[in-house]
């Protein structure tokens, strides 16, 4: 079914919080999902599966601040930090990500990081597919994103200066009905059951409305 962008942004964010993510991470994962949908990729499924599996990585090895290896990479928990570190890096950045639980969500995060921080980000997956997100938001390469448990090498470098930002002109997004329902269930975990006491304090309470 078709939804407004803002409806889905809000749903992704709430579902992320409902799944147990801190609100700041849920906001960025929502943006990653929307970036995918705007590029005709399955951002709805990526977000749902990403936030449904919040298992911490097994191990992280850091030779230095520019070279990182993460085993059993959890896209929802580790993905934002990987791009934060890439952004903060003062020299070309590389990470080896082993057994990625949700490669598609990682691609969405690459999309927002590239445009937010003017980066060129390349992901080369173990199944030989690869693509590059440019700082203007455009994507080059094979967009067939591998399934879960693929490995990837992520490289990052400053993007070309003064690039015109890609602007998503789509005004609606398509989300699968089943996925939508599952996201709604997660989002509902952020709602507090109503009580008579809480009702009495809301707008319009305490007056006759036929005045």
């Amino acid at each position: 079914m078709t939804y407004s962008v803002n409806e889905i942004a809000s749903l992704f964010r709430k579902a992320g919080i409902g799944a147990g993510l801190p609100s700041g991470m849920a906001e960025d994962i929502s943006r990653a999902g929307l970036w995918l949908l705007a590029h005709d990729l399955a951002g709805d499924d990526a977000v749902l599966h990403g936030i449904s599996n919040l298992e911490p990585h097994l191990s992280m090895e850091r030779a230095d601040s520019q070279n990182i290896v993460i085993h059993r990479f959890c896209s929802a928990l580790d993905g934002l930090s990987i791009f934060d570190l890439a952004t903060a890096s003062t020299s070309p950045f590389q990470a080896r990500l082993i057994q990625i639980d949700n490669p598609m969500l990682l691609v969405g995060m690459a999309g927002i990081a590239a445009t937010d921080y003017n980066l060129q980000i390349t992901l080369e997956f173990s199944d030989k597919s690869s693509f590059t997100v440019e700082a203007d938001g455009s994507v080059a390469g094979d967009l067939s994103v591998p399934d879960r448990d693929a490995d990837a090498v992520l490289t990052c470098q400053p993007g070309a200066a003064h690039q015109e930002k890609y602007r998503d002109v789509s005004s609606t997004v398509l989300v699968g009905d089943d996925t939508f329902k599952k996201l709604l269930i997660l989002a509902a975990k952020t709602y507090v059951p109503a009580t008579a006491a809480s009702r009495e304090k809301g707008a319009g309470a305490g007056l006759t409305d036929n005045d």
Partner: peptide
């Protein structure tokens, strides 16, 4: 950097 902080304490992102 802030990136290092959030790697350790991701709940401070917002």
């Amino acid at each position: 950097s802030v990136a290092e902080l959030l790697l350790q304490y991701p709940h401070y992102r917002q």
